[in-house]
Amino acid sequence: MSQTLSPERIRADIAELLGCDPDGIAPDENLVDLGLDSVRIMVLVERWRAAGATTLEFPDLFELPELAHWTALLTGVKA
């Protein structure tokens, strides 16, 4: 979806909003369970749209809030 979004940046952006170490996020862990609420997901949608993921929508992320899914969706690379 975007050439400017790397798996490392996606993980770092999520960790920043969760206030945790990026390495502490397991690829299959539910990010909502970790504390990523709908407002924070919208922050990520806007941030990643600005970085080139122009067709990204909130439901794309909310339907399966896992790092591996989001990374594959945004980059085509598995986390």
Rank of each mutant, 00 (worst) to 15 (best):
T4K: 12
I14N: 03
G24D: 14
I41Q: 00
A26F: 08
P65M: 04
R47S: 04
G76P: 04
R49W: 05
A50N: 04
C20H: 14
L34H: 11
E29N: 09
L64I: 10
M1D: 10
R40W: 02
L73D: 05
W48Q: 02
A12M: 15
I25P: 08
E66R: 12
T75H: 04
V43I: 07
D21W: 15
L36Y: 01
A79S: 12
H69N: 13
E46Y: 11
I41D: 00
P7Y: 11
T4F: 13
E8T: 07
I10D: 01
A68P: 01
V32H: 03
A68Y: 04
L64K: 10
P59N: 01
L18Y: 06
G52D: 06
T54H: 03
S38V: 05
L18K: 09
A79N: 05
L74R: 00
T71H: 05
E63A: 13
E57K: 08
P65F: 02
K78E: 15
H69W: 12
K78I: 15
V77F: 10
V39H: 04
A72Q: 14
A72P: 08
P65Q: 06
A79M: 12
V77D: 09
R40S: 06
L34T: 10
A12R: 15
L36S: 01
P27N: 11
T71Q: 09
R9T: 14
L61P: 00
G24C: 13
L5D: 01
V45Y: 01
A12Y: 13
E46H: 11
E29Y: 04
P27W: 11
G24T: 11
S38E: 08
L64M: 13
T55E: 11
W70S: 09
G24H: 07
L18F: 09
E63F: 10
M42D: 05
S38A: 10
S2V: 09
V45G: 03
I10G: 00
L44V: 00
D28R: 05
L73Q: 06
A26W: 09
A50Y: 02
L36V: 04
A12W: 13
H69E: 15
T4M: 10
L44Q: 00
A72T: 14
S6I: 06
D28G: 08
V43R: 07
R49H: 08
P59W: 00
S6N: 07
T54C: 09
E29H: 08
L18M: 08
Q3S: 14
M1Q: 08
A12N: 14
A79I: 12
G24W: 09
H69I: 08
R49L: 11
A53V: 08
G76E: 13
L56P: 00
Q3D: 14
V32F: 14
L36R: 02
T71N: 10
L36N: 00
V32W: 04
V77S: 12
D37C: 09
A68W: 02
E16P: 10
P7T: 03
C20F: 14
A51Y: 03
D21V: 10
E57C: 12
D33F: 09
E16N: 15
A72W: 07
T71L: 01
D37T: 06
